[in-house]
Design a protein around this nucleic acid. Structure first.
Lengths: 341, 341
DNA sequence: CGCGTTCCTGGGAACGTTCCCATCGGCGGC
DNA sequence: GCCGCCGATGGGAACGTTCCCAGGAACGCG
C-alpha cells in the first residue's frame, strides 16, 4: 500500500485549480455545471479533478451556503421494521428533490434520542423528521426553533410541527367489522398497553363494538407490543368463562404471542378462534404465520413526512398540518367464520 | 407562532460573545470546558448560550478541525434486522469513544449504495463502515484513499480495508453436528443460493457431512434467503424418494418457508423432521416459531468493526486485518431425535 | 515596591467552499 | 471604427468555528 492510502490527504479545490491552470472560482463553477464556463476549460477541470480523485467537501459547502441539502431522520428503533418502510418513503421523495437522507437512532432510549436529535441539529440538516420518538415535547419545540420538524407516527401537538399518522381508531374498527361480518360476536382485544397508537386502537375497538350492538361482548386483556405481551393477554382471555371466538391483537408481534397461547390451549386458528393483527409487517406475510392484519401505509407515511418537510423548506409557513392516513384490512389465513356450534 | 419559529435564525458564537460581553474565543473555550476560563466568565457564557438557545455549528467545527467526530455507516438494507444489531454494536463502541454515528442506506441497489457512500465521503466522516454492501471493490478501494474503511459481513480483500465476518463454514458444521448428535443421518440442506455467506455454508455442510461419514446422505436443494425460497427448497426435498429426517435452512427466513412446506405435507416438527435455521434473528426466537438456529454474533461484529475503525483513527496503519467471529448453536423447539421408526 | 510568573483574555488566521463583483477581451451595430 | 455589451475569468469576502499567539492583570516573593 502506498503512503497515500495510509495518511488521508484530500485534494481541495485549489489543488484542482492549480493542476488545471485556472482559478478556484472556475473550478467551482465547472464542477457544478454552472453556465458561464467555456467547454475547453470545463473539460480541463473535469480531467484534473478526476486525476486527483477530488471530491467536493460538503462541510465547507454547507458552511458557506448555510444549507446542507440534507434531511435528518431520527428513528427510535431500527429493530422495528416499521421504520424501514417509513424510511423507504422518505428516501424516495428526498432523492427526487435532490436531498440526501441521514439517519440517526436512539435505540429505544430517551436520552439517546435527545442526543441523536442534538447531533442532527448541530449538523445543520435542512430539516428533521422524527419517527415515533419518545422525545419530550419541549425538545421537539426547541428543535422547531431552528429547523422544520415533522413527526411521524406520533400525533403530538407542537406549534409549527407537522405530523403524519395513521388512523388507529379506524384500523381497529376495520378489524372488528371484518370479524363481525364473518359472524363473530365475542370479539376480544389484546391491548397494546402504553405503546404508541394503542390508546386510539382501544377506543376504536370499543366504539366499533358498540356501534355493532356488541357492547356487552367487549373484552380487553392487558398486553403490550411484544410477542410475550400478546401471549399473556391471550392466556388471560382463555381462562375466562366464555372464551372469545375472535381476537384483535395490539400489533402483529403480539399476534404471534396470541398464536402461541392458542396452540398451547389446543385451539385451532381459524377454526376455533380467529385472529387479526395490526401493522401488516413482513412477519404477518410469512406463510407460516399468514396473519390477517391491518395494513398501515408506512411508505406513504414516509413520503408524506418528506413532502411536509419540503413544503416548509420551500418557505411554507403557517400552522402545523396534521395528516392522517387511512389503514386497510389485509385478509389472510387467520380469520374465518366461527365454527357452527 | 412567533416569527422566530418560522424563519430559522440561529445564534452564532458571536451572538453569545456579545451577550456575555466577552470574546468569541472565550465563548469557544468556555463551552468546551477548556481549562483556562475563570468560573465567573464560564457561568456568564453558559447563561448567555442558554438564553439564546445557542447550539454549536458542527459544520464549522468540522471544517476547522478537519475532523467530524463522526463515523458513517452504510447499510445495504434496513429491512434486514441483521443490520440493526450490527448497528447496536457500532453505536455502543462509538458512544464510548466520543464518536457519533451517521447511517445511510442503499436500499439493496448498487447505484444507490455508491451514492450513499459518496455522501459519507463528501460529508467527511472520520471513518466509514460498510455493512454487507454490494459496492464494487473499486469504489471501496477509492474510498480507502481518503478515509479508514471497514467491511462487515463481507470478506472482500481490499488493500488497507479491515473486514469483520462470521465463520459461515463453521456455523454450518455446528448445525450438522448437532443434528448428527441427535441421531440424524439423512440431513439435507436448503441452500441460500447466491446470498452472502451461502457458498461458505454449503461448503461447511458438505465437509461436516463427509467428516461424519455421511457423505452418501448429502442432499442439497436449491433455495434462497427468503421465505419463498425455503418453501421451494423444502418441497423439492419432500418429493424425493427418501425424505430427510432433518433439514438445515440457509437462514431463519428460509426456515419459516421450510416450516410451511412441512406443515402442508402433514409432517410434524420436530417429531417427523428436525429443522435448523441460521442467524438467530428475532424471528427464530418467537415462540410460535421457536427455531433451533445458528447464532451470528452480530452485535459483536458491529463492535469489532467500530474498534477496527478506531484503531485506524488512532493512527493504526499497516495491512488489513480480517477478523472472523465464531457462530454458536441455539437450541429451541425444532430439533429432536428422529422418531424411532 | 519592582519584577517575574502564572492565569486569563482577545485578536487574527485558517479550514474549503460559494458568491458577488470587477476586469478583460472580443464582437456587433451604427 | 468607436462604443457598448456580453461572455469568460479571477480575486476577495464570507460562512462559524478552533487554534495559536500576544498582551495584560494579578499575585507572590525578595
Amino acid at each position: 500500500m502506498s503512503e497515500r492510502a495510509e495518511r488521508a490527504w484530500r485534494p481541495t479545490i485549489l489543488d484542482v485549480a492549480a493542476r488545471a491552470g485556472v482559478s478556484k472560482s472556475l473550478v467551482s463553477r465547472a464542477l457544478r455545471d454552472a453556465p458561464t464556463v467555456s467547454p475547453a476549460r470545463r473539460a480541463a477541470v473535469r480531467q484534473a479533478a478526476e486525476e486527483l480523485g477530488y471530491r467536493p467537501n460538503a462541510v465547507a459547502r454547507s458552511l458557506v451556503q448555510r444549507r446542507s441539502h440534507t434531511v435528518g431522520v431520527m428513528v427510535s428503533d431500527l429493530h422495528n421494521l416499521f421504520f424501514a418502510e417509513v424510511l423507504d418513503g422518505v428516501e424516495a421523495v428526498a432523492a427526487g428533490h435532490g436531498y440526501r437522507v441521514l439517519i440517526v437512532t436512539g435505540n429505544r432510549d430517551r436520552a439517546a434520542e435527545e442526543q441523536a436529535l442534538e447531533t442532527l441539529l448541530e449538523l445543520r440538516t435542512d430539516a428533521v423528521i422524527l419517527a415515533s420518538s419518545r422525545l419530550s415535547l419541549r425538545s421537539v419545540a426547541a428543535a422547531r426553533q431552528s429547523v422544520p420538524v415533522t413527526l411521524v407516527a406520533r400525533a403530538a401537538r407542537v406549534a409549527g410541527v407537522d405530523t403524519v399518522t395513521n388512523d388507529d381508531g379506524r384500523g381497529a374498527r376495520l378489524a372488528v367489522e371484518h370479524l363481525a361480518s364473518l359472524g363473530h360476536r365475542r370479539i376480544a382485544l389484546v391491548d397494546g398497553g402504553s405503546g404508541p397508537g394503542s390508546a386510539a386502537r382501544r377506543r376504536g375497538y370499543r366504539a366499533a363494538m358498540g356501534a355493532l350492538g356488541l357492547a356487552d361482548e367487549i373484552g380487553v386483556a392487558a398486553g403490550d407490543f411484544t410477542d410475550e405481551g400478546g401471549y399473556r393477554g391471550a392466556r388471560s382471555l382463555l381462562t375466562g368463562s366464555s372464551r372469545p371466538t375472535a381476537i384483535c391483537a395490539g400489533n402483529d408481534l403480539a399476534a404471534t404471542g396470541v398464536l402461541t397461547a392458542l396452540a398451547e390451549a389446543g385451539l385451532r386458528v381459524p377454526a376455533d378462534v380467529s385472529l387479526v393483527g395490526y401493522d401488516n409487517t413482513a412477519l404477518a406475510a410469512l406463510r407460516h404465520v399468514s396473519l390477517t392484519t391491518i395494513h398501515q401505509p408506512r411508505t406513504e407515511m414516509g413520503e408524506a413526512a418528506m413532502r411536509a418537510a419540503l413544503r416548509r423548506l420551500d418557505g411554507g409557513a403557517g400552522r402545523a398540518r396534521r395528516l392522517v392516513l387511512q389503514p386497510s384490512l389485509v385478509q389472510r389465513a387467520t380469520t374465518a367464520s366461527p365454527a357452527a356450534s
